[in-house]
Design a protein around this nucleic acid. Sequence first.
RNA 1: GCGGGCGUGAUGGAAUGGUAGACAUACCAGACUUAAAAUCUGAGGGGCGUAUGCCCGUGUGGGUUCGAGUCCCACCGCCCGCACCA
Length: 855
Amino acid sequence: MSRYNARVVEPKWQAAWEKAGTFTARRDPARPKYYVLEMFPYPSGRIHIGHVRNYTMGDVIARYKKANGFSVLHPMGWDAFGMPAENAAMDKGVHPGDWTYQNIADMRSQMKPLGFSIDWAREFATCDPEYYGQQQKLFLDMLDAGLVYRKNAVVNWDPVDMTVLANEQVIDGKGWRSNAEVERKELTQWFFKISDYSEELLEAIDTLKDWPEKVRLMQANWIGKSRGLEFGFRTLDAPEGFDTLDVYTTRPDTLLGASFAAISPDHPLAKALEVREDIATFNAECRKTGTSEEALEKAEKRGIDTGIRVVHPLDPNWELPVYIANFILMDYGTGAIFGCPAHDQRDLDFARKYGLPVIDVYQDMNAGKPVEAEAYVPPKTEPVRYVKLLAGDEIMTGNDAVDAAIDYCESKGIGTGVTKFRLRDWGISRQRYWGCPIPVVHCDACGVVPEKTENLPVTLPKDVTLDAPGNPLDRHPTWRDTECPSCGGPAKRETDTMDTFVDSSWYFARFTSPEAKTPTEADDVAYWMNVDQYIGGVEHAILHLLYSRFFARAMHKTGHLPREAIEPFNALFTQGMVTHETYATRSDTGRVIWHAPDEVTLSGDKAHLKDGSPVEIGPVIKMSKSKKNVIDPEDIIDQYGADTARWFVMSDSPPERDVEWTAAGAEAAWKHLQRVWRLADEIRQSADEASPDGGSEEALALKKATHRAIADVTQGIEGFAFNKSVAKLYELTNVLAKSKAPAAEKLETVNVLARLMQPLTPHLAEEIWHALGQATLISDADWPVADPALLVEDEITLPIQINGKRRAEISVAKDASRETIEALALADAAVQKVLDGADPKKIIVVPGRIINVVL
RNA sequence: GCGGGCGUGAUGGAAUGGUAGACAUACCAGACUUAAAAUCUGAGGGGCGUAUGCCCGUGUGGGUUCGAGUCCCACCGCCCGCACCA
């Protein structure tokens, strides 16, 4: 008996696939196409188990579709721009480009042994000038189409390092390197007009039938369409030019419950008032909060009375104070609100803190009572009783009241009903080196001028230093100097680079013709787009997927994608994350230092480093390089081979759920694959000896089990329930091992088993296929088809419940009538005993399922 | 804070509103072996009982239903996202 040696077998078949071009994607008009894509990785340098899980899922789909006759595109690339390369450059003195390409080489060499059915000829990295040059072309086309503009926006500013910080680099309001208090600073930034598509991006969510409902919900909430009233308060004692204060509200029905107005510290009026020292101080304090919405919302709610008052639009004698408040966002609405404490918890907290009145507008229909500690905020769909009625009926839902209030205010000329979206335009400027240069030039004479297409790509200079903070492109002695594409005079290049989300917003289209001299090639996108199945982490549910949907529309508008491709991902699967405990110690200055699992020794529920110092065991969170809680899959591959790693990550955990990595189980996977090989080998040998054993009854039983397995494994793959497919493969193996069927029948089952396992463990499947004497590759073999006639059972077992508890079971013919089943159930001894001669109140018979006798 | 999700044996997890715990891991017992490993066989949610069996069990508390892990409401815990992390 030959032993299965993955170390020898796996490279052999990988070489065979490469030689035969088995996974080369070809445009084949005779076959339907299938484009399967997993979100491409950031080249951190090491693949981790999350990658293995992600790409194995895609590979199972790709191989399964190929076996079903599709022409499959399954590419791979690298999301290669971004901060970690600059951090590595600063920490280790390497060039970001060298670091990145070395990481790519390392990761490719770790990925290839996994035997994925990837067309490696299409590989590219977003930091290749050939890629980002085409991205610059897209940028210029979008600029031309009016989808790009400049405006001021705030960034996190580190006053010590004199550099812009990402939100991730702001920790508790302080810079991660300098530990200095972060400030907000305004810069002129480039923006994509995603808001032009707010309505369309929202409505088209309905067409994304094969996306998870939760992602569609999150996107809809993110876009955040709301209907409300915009109106101007007349101001008293305000600085010149601020005669009115425009506010937006989604609850105009609560206008009679207003007790104050509040503006953002970034509101123009707030800035105009900074001549007052207390207000200047207050605003400066507010600006120390980071720019993230989370930081703003979590900050303690604070305000300052400006002394300005506004006149209530419905009563000229009613004056409200105007506060500057740190929880008002300048980015949403007009940056100013009116506060209605009775029906908004935040407003109520604010009113209690500053001694402002609380005026009830509506109350519960039944148990109406004035608001005290808790604001009364029922759903807008619930009818309530209005005690301060602006318009409409006394009893109505919030939604009806809002409509009535808007109509009323419009008729009185107080304001206008407007639709607003929460979605903001996409700021893409980054003051960083390692990104795609924004291809424009600043000319003293001509202003901002787009670079000429023939001068693309605008490449990054290699000779930069990252030992000082800030953008090296800014400091570079010559790179900035250029001539104006318009007047030919001396000019300066834009030194901002693009957000790395831009890179990942169209790479899927580029894979269809990665070497084209234009961003896309019409024939190729027409054949390959859309992505039929997109697979990636749920953490990308909003930003990446929304930006890609916008980009597809922008690319259609600029002629780079057909109309049919404006929703680029037909089906989406969001896999769960691979999580792991985190391990941390603290430096002398109190800074958190993270430790990798292999640096930590666990004993019971305690952990310590090799030097014995105690380690805090942190929460189980997604594996990330920054928290160091990553597991290296290479160990498993080295020890057991790729098939074991693939089998292991696909078994047990349902793919959409998070899985906490534990080392136990890899060996079990390996044992099982050894068992399959041994079994196949034994059966092949016994078939050679042609020993006639078993009878036709066993043959039929095995045949049925085999076809049952075909149906179940297929269903598992189709439904992204790979763990269930694996369980069914275990079952079939167990049945086969115990079967007394004739060798020929067993051999047939081995043939099917190999083909069913091929997407999961392709190398083992090839080896068995070869041993069975097949001259072809199993990777080219057809998917087995279940015979429906073999899937039905003649006799089925039905459980009998008495009052909903299972008490007995009976065996009936599969097509037995309701009456027959009922009679059989009533005749059952257990039922007879409980009935004790009486008639049951009710009998529920669900044919093929269950019988419930109700007493 | 806001938006979204998840919660089932010791463990990973099965279960179109219809027999809770498929399949697997770990543990235990047995076979083989001088022995161990490997392999094979078997038992097992908890409680009571010799047993037929009975009671209790899907984070907690309510509800809908002939029937709830599944649907609804409230709560608890954990996870993801929050626009400059990728």
